[in-house]
Design a protein around this nucleic acid. Structure first.
Lengths: 148, 148
DNA sequence: CCTACAACCTATAGCCACTACAGCTTCAAG
DNA sequence: CTTGAAGCTGTAGTGGCTATAGGTTGTAGG
């Protein structure tokens, strides 16, 4: 009998997808944009992946899960291929991304506060004639102190 | 002499853009997708906007600034056109969006923690042979406890 | 060996909310 | 009347996938 799937060294795209948690279509997309190298093919032209592909795709997936842009991951992959050095550059990419994430959090938090204020007023039993949500959007008081 | 721009009742698209802080191309896009009604045209086929357009576009801009999807804004605009009622529906849209924003914040915060951890190790004077950023992405210890 | 069916293949279009460009016409100041 | 900014339409591109159509291959059961 053949070895269990999890032990096979050469696998089709569906198995690679299962192992890494990346969808089949996404794997083909990564190949198309040059993140994942083209694998060998079977006689019938189907992709056959080896251990190196699994690891590279896992790297990509971790990066995406951490919110790195595909272009950043491309650079990080290149850096990881050149052994030893280039920690500085990798660190710079991570630090920049961290800054972006913190910016995004800050913006979302002020958004959250504003939305919470609006939604609270609306559910807080104001006279039914006006809707606080609609009012808030129609109201110019917020934008006027920005100057227009 | 003609009245100052800020007092004109009928304005071209560039002035509308200035007044609302929405770019010219975006205004045309909103018209195309039916958020902003088609305005009158000059003899030479150029758009001429009135007060109602300014207000409607400001409404849209406020909604977008608060992160509402264009489709949500379409609904909110419809609700604001039907006077009086429908506060429930508007409130539901706002509450749902608030939930989404809070989810997004939560996800970004755990991302931030992870990134900060990685970046700190990297800058923290570890032996220069390994890069913590690259290691973190290549490492399977994080995903293994998710099961793959 | 044959059949059925899942899994695979390519190519293309769609998603969201714009943004950018090409190639033209119109408006307003001097 | 000339110039140049601002306007017009239509189309394509962005990021990162996702979905569909219409075909081919791989494999397990009978």
């Amino acid at each position: 009998m053949p070895p269990a799937k999890t032990l096979e060294r050469v696998v089709p795209i569906g198995t690679l997808a299962e192992r890494t948690g990346v969808k089949v279509e996404t794997i083909r997309y990564y190949e198309q944009v040059g993140l994942l190298p083209e694998p060998e093919r079977s006689e019938g032209n189907q992709r056959r992946y080896g251990r190196a592909h699994v690891e590279r795709l896992a790297f990509i997936k971790h990066g995406r899960d951490l919110g790195f842009a595909v272009e950043s991951i491309r650079t990080l992959l290149r850096l990881s291929d050149t052994p030893g050095m280039a920690c500085d550059e990798a660190h710079a990419i991570a630090a920049e991304h961290l800054d972006e994430v913190r910016d995004k959090i800050a913006r979302l938090r002020s958004l959250e506060a504003e939305l919470a204020r609006i939604a609270t007023v609306c559910s807080g039993g104001v006279a039914a004639s006006d809707c606080a949500v609609i009012e808030a959007l129609a109201d110019h008081s917020h934008c006027e102190h920005h100057g227009h």
